[in-house]
Amino acid sequence: MSRAFILILGLWIGLAEAQIVTVAPEYQQRYNSLLHELRCLVCQNQTLADSGSGLADDLRLEVKRMLEEGRSNEQIYTFMSDRYGDFVLYNPPVKPRTWLLWFGPFILLLAGLIGIRQVVRSNNKTAKSSALTDAEKRQVNAVIKDRDD
């Protein structure tokens, strides 16, 4: 029973596998790199290269057609973002809407560094102020002496 199940599962995965589009060897490298830079909107965490959805099949054919027409990578990215938005680009363009996305991590890093500096500083201060006064030292010495005796 489990063997049959695995067999069925295997067949099913086979069906879901991406339809293979063959491109001329001279385009192969660009074709592959383009597909890895484009998101499939049907299964959003997959690139066009990985996705087995029908739309991804069609879009791979579109990429192939555009390569054969001699369009540049830039033109192909524009074709996709004109239709599906910047979200399809795994490498989104820098513009006011994406500033937070691009620069946010550096702002957080800077905030973290400032935070660390503050903590270290205040620790230093408490370390200094915790130095014992003469009276306290005498007291401590007295206690130690008491115990030694």
Binding site: L41, V42, G54, L55, D58, L59, E62, R83, Y84, G85
Partner: peptide, 13 residues
């Protein structure tokens, strides 16, 4: 039939 018009309309679902 081949979904080309839908691509121009940005249809994804």
């Amino acid at each position: 039939d081949d979904g080309r018009i839908a691509i121009d309309f940005g249809v994804y679902g």
